[in-house]
């Protein structure tokens, strides 16, 4: 089973998914990340899926679950780098990921989080 590394940059956690993950690894990532949000006090989470070739309902649910869990732990999540073919497929699959914020790339994702945190809550 692959373990996805979680990087910390200031108060942001960055996860870059580089391999085709087994379902077990996806579940492990959800748990690792929730632990890490709490242990680091991170205020933002970025999930970089630039290298991800497909998002099926299992990965889609992971993205939504991470966003919801992190929000409950006071961190905002942004998914960055979704490929156009993946976006088209996800919508047709029936998953619109309404509760998940997205940005086109890592830089824009960081800017979005900075903006969110400087705005009054």
């Amino acid at each position: 089973m692959e373990r996805v590394p979680i990087l910390k940059l200031g108060d942001i956690l960055i996860i870059s998914i580089q391999v085709d993950l087994e379902d077990q690894s996806v579940l492990a990532l959800q748990e690792d990340l929730a632990d890490k949000v709490v242990s680091t006090g991170a205020r933002g989470v970025i999930i970089d899926i630039t290298a991800v070739e497909i998002v099926d309902s299992f990965i889609g649910r992971m993205l939504a679950t991470i966003a919801a869990t992190s929000r409950m732990l006071d961190a905002e999540t942004v998914v960055v780098g979704m490929r156009p073919a993946v976006a088209i497929t996800l919508v047709e699959l029936g998953l619109s990921l309404g509760g998940v914020r997205t940005a086109l790339n890592l830089e824009k994702g960081v800017a979005l989080l900075d903006h969110t945190r400087s705005a009054p809550r």
Binding site: I54, A85, V86, T89
Partner: peptide, 26 residues
Amino acid sequence: RALAVDVGLSLVDQTKVVTAASELAR
């Protein structure tokens, strides 16, 4: 994915058929 490339499916169609395969295999 490999065979979808071989038969000449477009990138979007490759992505769709691999996603369907993932759902059905699971």
